[in-house]
């Protein structure tokens, strides 16, 4: 057992999560593969979306995995950094737009 959280070797062993619920694991991983297959979006576009989302959910496994994956699908550092900024802008914007609630409430209770 790992003596710290977020052990890098957990990512490689991710498939073993199915041991406790094989059917659900099978369905999840099949779904996961289907999601990332080329479709209306290219694999590269999906990898960049995943990279941005990985930063939003702050998952270190996903950040490592989709950094490599984005590179392997042909993205470069500038494109990947822009993707992370998209995540950053949405996170920041989401905080800021809640300020509208603050503003309305302040206006209601204030003089």
């Amino acid at each position: 057992m790992s003596d710290h959280y977020y052990a890098p070797e957990h990512l490689k062993a991710f498939g073993s999560i199915s041991e406790g619920a094989p059917e659900l694991g099978k369905k999840f991983f099949e779904y996961y593969s289907a999601v990332f297959a080329p479709g209306a979006l290219t694999e590269r576009e999906k990898a960049l979306i995943a990279l941005a989302v990985a930063h939003t959910v702050q998952c270190p496994y996903c950040i490592d995995a989709y950094t490599t994956e984005s590179l392997q699908k042909g993205a470069d550092l500038e494109q990947m950094t822009e993707a992370v900024h998209v995540a950053c802008a949405i996170r920041g914007g989401a905080s800021l737009v809640h300020g509208m609630q603050m503003k309305e409430h302040a206006e209601k209770v204030g003089m």
Binding site: T42, E43, R44, L71, Q72, K73, G74
Partner: peptide, 10 residues
């Protein structure tokens, strides 16, 4: 240190 991009979509 990573693999080449998929040729046709790239």
């Amino acid at each position: 240190a990573f693999l080449a991009a998929p040729q046709s979509s790239a």
